[in-house]
């Protein structure tokens, strides 16, 4: 398995959690995509959360890698939710004309987990 070494892939509550915290070069982004698919095959996870809170910039290449990862995961029976997109990043992608119609997104990891059918109990929520 290729190791990008920069982005850990964790298993939480039966889903894979990928928290991208660094500005990704193109090769690292592509390698991460392959690592994630291999992790899906290895773990049999039916959900994938990609947390991009740490990304100050998502250009068309990185966006394409993220969307493609979701499409590839879907072929493996895994549902993908992208969480933590910053307002300015969301604005930039739409202004560029990037097609976001097939992207499932949530505000944060909790909401993303709920979207994937996990029960999230928030302390003091009720």
């Amino acid at each position: 398995m290729r190791q990008t070494g920069q982005v850990p892939i964790l298993r939480v509550a039966g889903v894979l959690l990928v928290a991208i915290q660094v500005d990704l070069g193109d090769t690292v982004a592509t390698a991460l995509q392959e690592d994630v698919l291999e992790a899906i095959a290895r773990t049999g996870s039916t959900g994938l959360l990609i947390d991009v809170t740490g990304l100050e910039m998502v250009d068309s290449f990185v966006a394409r890698v993220l969307v493609d990862t979701g499409r590839m995961a879907r072929l493996m029976g895994t549902e993908t939710v992208i969480v933590g997109l910053r307002p300015e990043v969301a604005g930039t992608l739409v202004r560029m004309g990037f097609d976001v119609s097939e992207v499932q997104a949530a505000l944060d990891i909790d909401e993303g987990l709920e979207r994937l059918g996990c029960k999230v109990v928030r302390r003091g929520a009720d």
Binding site: E56, F61, P87
Partner: peptide, 28 residues
């Protein structure tokens, strides 16, 4: 280069949206 573009935009007092715009355009 895109990181440097962001630094300059920050230094020039750009808001977050304008920073993201110049950084992303630079990257492309």
């Amino acid at each position: 280069v895109r990181r440097r573009a962001r630094e300059l935009a920050q230094r020039r007092g750009f808001d977050g949206f304008a920073q993201a715009a110049i950084t992303t355009a630079t990257s492309e």
